[in-house]
Design a protein around this nucleic acid. Structure first.
Lengths: 253, 253
DNA sequence: TTGTATGCTTGATCAGGGTCAAAAACTTTG
DNA sequence: CAAAGTTTTTGACCCTGATCAAGCATACAA
């Protein structure tokens, strides 16, 4: 989401889970050193995706789950009439690929919104390993349900909210998720276009744009194109009407 | 959902998975006789819930998943302002309780819409068993992701559809799910109120009602209160704009 | 630099569906 | 069998947000 300005990226060929800053949000949570190594062995780390490159397409055989390591990904289905329906945005530490689990083939397209690197988890190997490591199984289940339920919660709320609340909720959600992952909660870059946001939130681009303008006029944030600086997070949170589901999570995720 | 009129319910104390008509939709799918028995051993079958009785409340410790055996259940969260947000309706063969997996306590209320019996699956025992039985683990994962993704898919569509399409989509969804479970796809009883439907679909009760009237005037269905008889399922399906996700599933679920 | 494509913003118009109000159909209770 | 409470339906009015139509701003290529 946010790219640390001019950060120098060292070659990250052999990044192990044990060195990963997302460790506590990710599958390794709760594993000891030995278990971590066994997990590490099955994880592949493919070369980074460039913007608009795809991780998988609808119909591709389901083999792996992916965790976003850096960057961001959007997933979308394509309707019979050809237009796309965005099903989610995925930030670092979040799972991608669950849409393949139930039918053994992916139902969405997963597309990088910027340069993005992922960890690939071959699912059958993950399943057999989690049959052996109690804590891994538990965490896998946690992540699977958490990923989707958070999404669902958001969508349900969106159903009956005003355009203003929706956009507020969207921003708060992004802010919160980035914050959990160690980024600033008040300043970040949106990697998706306004059109994407509108598509996801079920409203016209124009309306999204107008809401951004309104928020600026009310002094709640500064937005110049993709770059967002939130000035009154609390107010936005109130407007969103979301009862911050993630307050004091018993599990640090 | 549909109650067979005046069906005589025999005392169902010791119903085993092997005798259950929902077997192929449920966890037992793909298990052999021996494995089935081991699964059967951990399953509890509590006494049926009466209408408006609750299976669990928000905050209750997460111990079990439930599968609806007969009847139907609604799950909902309650907002800070006190009004409820329905998160789903659960028909026979469908899982309830996934909202508890990620935080170890339920986040919803699960309430019976009619006399409802469930199978209770103690989750920790289920996890350890699925560590031992390959096929059980796979099916558990399938069900977990399927349950929630189907829901999500529906919600996303709803976001940008007209009131007419939404109600059509809702009816088609119910019809399809009942059909998969061996009930009629054209004639059934809605066990939830119009208010519930409106709440779930994110629209006013009045609008729901008006849509039912419209559909009747167009000769697409007959509705007298809860009892629905669909006359033109195909037309409704078209109106819903849903590209029937469940067509020819590779796994019979 | 200029051109072209894409993304963002702003304005004007209009209808879908929310809200308020009330009656009708049905259910439950005393 | 009233009486009181739900649930569903219908009508009237009005506001939010979609749509159409331009006009800007930014990015990238030639």
């Amino acid at each position: 989401m946010t790219t640390p300005p001019k950060a120098i990226r060292l070659p990250q060929i052999k990044v192990a889970c044990s060195d990963c800053s997302l460790r506590s949000l990710c599958l390794p949570f709760g594993l000891d050193g030995e278990e971590l190594n066994r997990l590490d062995e099955i994880i592949k780390r493919p070369r980074p995706l460039q913007r608009s490159q795809r991780l998988y397409h609808p119909g591709d055989e389901f083999r792996s789950l992916y965790v976003v390591r850096s960057g961001s990904i959007k997933t979308y289905t394509t309707t019979t009439t050809g237009d796309q329906q965005i099903t989610g945005f995925h930030l670092p530490g979040e799972l991608v690929g669950l849409d393949g689990v139930s039918t053994d083939s992916y139902s969405c397209t997963a597309e990088a919104l910027e340069t993005t690197s992922v960890c690939e988890l071959p699912f059958s190997r993950l399943e057999s390993l989690s049959g052996q490591i109690q804590g891994l199984q538990r965490q896998l289940h946690r992540l699977m349900s958490k990923e989707i339920l958070a999404e669902q919660q958001l969508l349900l709320q969106l159903g009956k909210m005003s355009a203003e609340s929706r956009v507020a909720a969207f921003l708060v959600s992004i802010s919160m998720r980035l914050h959990t992952r160690g980024f600033s909660e008040t300043e970040f870059n949106l990697t998706m276009t306004r059109t994407d946001i509108g598509n996801y939130l079920g409203m016209a681009v124009e309306t999204v744009s107008r809401q951004f303008t309104n928020f600026q006029e009310q002094g709640l944030l500064k937005a110049s194109r993709k770059h967002i600086q939130i000035l009154a997070l609390d107010t936005l949170r109130e407007m969103s009407g979301l009862m911050q589901c993630e307050k004091k999570p018993s599990i640090p995720n």
